[in-house]
Design a protein around this nucleic acid. Structure first.
Lengths: 130, 130
DNA sequence: AATAGCAGTATACAAAAGTATAGTAACAAA
DNA sequence: TTTGTTACTATACTTTTGTATACTGCTATT
């Protein structure tokens, strides 16, 4: 049984579907996971650089989130035994593929905003003018 | 400027990209939004039926989440002036389109699980055998 | 008149997620 | 020897999210 068949099976069963979606949702939800993944995608690999690049994140949060992403198989942590020690965080193959999910989200978000809020903005402007 | 162009623009700018993804993420994150959307997709429309269909949700949470989804333009609430009063919640066009996002999440989730955890399971079994 | 169904609301509480602030350990350079 | 850099950890706190339990207002049925 391959993933295509599996996903077709799952789409027939609302309960399993929700569970499967939730697995993915848990990997990317929270305040900092997305900024971290985006930073890694842009080639930033080191703790300090991530700290500097992601506005307002604290070392505690960065450390916590990196651990979670590692446990979830989204990133890998490599220790370089140089002096001073150097540690690199990079996306796994799966981690890179998650861009497909993020792109789906951007596309839906823009389309949705187009349908929903442009109409509202026009209404708001119309009201404001009178 | 259409959505395709806009999304290409956004994909070049990590900060905007994160914001756009977050918009969508906020619509579906939390413990109950997905079960609610799945129930609506399966044709359940009434408060009581949603309460019965979604395991362990309280009326407070259902009410709160339905309001949020309505404000976000994902569902609409129709009041039928019959006796007794009847209220139907249904997905908007955008709400239905969100399935594209959920499908992307199922697909990534299955693929990721295939790559990551099957390997781990094999390792665990190997260890357990010796 | 009492009971039940529908569509919720009110209040108080518990748990999870995130923040603020300070500190550690290992080394290296001035 | 003090200062700086990297990669974090520790403790205490606040905010957000979700839970438990009870209640309301309306109508219909028995």
């Amino acid at each position: 049984m391959n993933n295509l068949e599996t996903s077709l099976e799952i789409k027939k069963c609302p309960r399993k579907y929700v569970l499967a979606v939730n697995d993915t949702l848990n990997v990317i939800s929270g305040k900092w996971k997305l900024p971290i993944i985006a930073s890694l995608l842009s080639g930033i690999t080191r703790f300090k650089d991530l700290l500097d690049n992601i506005e307002k994140i604290t070392p505690r949060m960065l450390s916590k989130e990196l651990k979670e992403l590692e446990v979830n198989g989204v990133i890998k942590r490599k220790v370089f035994d140089t002096t001073p020690i150097r540690i690199e965080y990079t996306l796994t193959a799966s981690g890179q593929n998650i861009v497909s999910v993020l792109d789906a989200m951007v596309n839906w978000g823009l389309d949705h905003r187009g349908k929903t809020f442009v109409a509202n903005d026009v209404k708001a402007q119309f009201k404001a003018q009178r």
